[in-house]
Write a protein that binds this DNA or RNA. Structure first.
Lengths: 123, 123, 123, 123
DNA sequence: GTGGTCTAGACCACG
DNA sequence: GTGGTCTAGACCACG
């Protein structure tokens, strides 16, 4: 799996990596139980600080997306906790994005089409 | 229009206010040409510093959502610039949110229903 | 002569009017000795405060572009003081504008052509 | 690169700094990728508040001239967005400056010569 | 060590 | 009375 960092983004690097791994798991690109690169390897590959990758893995672990152990490194959990609902933060983000799309002149139809496209990526 | 700040959020205060005003404009709660509270009034009302509100207004101005002048204070622009498309950042956010929703066990149908609900708020 | 105010501009109204009158004099649209509208008339016509127009006229007078007397109102001076050189401020502005044009990807030829066009308006 | 503030100017400090950095980038004095002084260092050096410098950097960032990150501080972007044209504001400023030059008695030839000089600084 | 955010308080130009 | 600017000083997340 290829992870790309956007250096112009305001999203912190550790969060960009986290987001891409989450999307990888959700889309199926990363399978349950699959091994992730070691902190050191990923940091080296991306030319960033090991601390940054470490922060990503700890976050993913605390969110229940991955497991880490000293022997095997980090692996995708095969029983990710399902709360069954979206966080209020994400709901709010959705509202913000939709409202901005409308003000940008994106039509309802265009937006629905785009949303269907994104849904088909993950469902 | 009531603006609520979540002091525990990671989103900076000036950005929370900005987001709520954008949503207000998009939903129609704030009409084109409508006066916004003065910097001082809003700061007082929310118990925050005038500089913070000022930052919000300048951001909204630079984004083309409002205009300010010393006589009338700030008001909603009546010809908001329409790029016609969503920013890459917002598209990416949509993908992140959808991917997280799926991993949380939200079904495609539930998500579609929620999206329709949000769309009907703004379109 | 038609004066247009851009309400979105950061340039104060009194300065926008001043600039347009100066350009009118320089282009010949306003002739030496020509009568300007009264403060009251111009303010009424533009739907702005008389104080704003008054400020404009006082500025133009202090800059030596117009004369005012109680009997005849304001007139374009027929012997505008010629310093013979550009102000340092204006030179600096030119440098700023040219530097921004270049960074915007405007070619030297395009810029020269535009400058010739502007020069032919006033010379 | 030396930045000089004119404390008597009407141009706000953060804007004076912004203008000089833009001119520095355009003239080549500041190279793509080059580090800018840290907010604190520049503020200290110029004897002004860090907030003022911070405002400058955020403006330059929002205009696409520089990028900032917490590790490296601020640096000049190597792919500055090129709109391909001058802003209407800058065109208007050019007209104002040329019209004032003419009224000051600057000849067309002198002005053309000065413009060529400025163009050769940046092109 | 860096930029980002926020406060309390002040002064100013504009209208 | 309004927004715009600036200071002095502080705390925080990121890396």
């Amino acid at each position: 799996m290829v992870i790309k960092i956007n250096e112009y983004s305001d999203v912190p690097i550790y969060m960009q990596i986290r987001n891409q791994i989450v999307m990888g798991i959700s889309s199926g690109e990363l399978s349950p139980g699959e091994q992730l690169p070691t902190v050191r390897a990923l940091a080296m590959e991306m030319g960033i600080n090991t601390m940054t990758v470490s922060k990503t893995y700890q976050l993913l672990k605390s969110e229940g997306y991955i497991l880490t152990d000293r022997k095997n490194g980090a692996r995708v959990r095969d029983n990710i906790t399902k709360s069954g609902s979206m966080s209020d933060e994400n709901k709010n983000e959705l509202r913000r994005i939709v409202s901005e799309a409308r003000l940008s002149g994106v039509s309802k139809e265009e937006l629905q089409k785009m949303l269907e496209g994104i849904l088909s990526e993950f469902y």
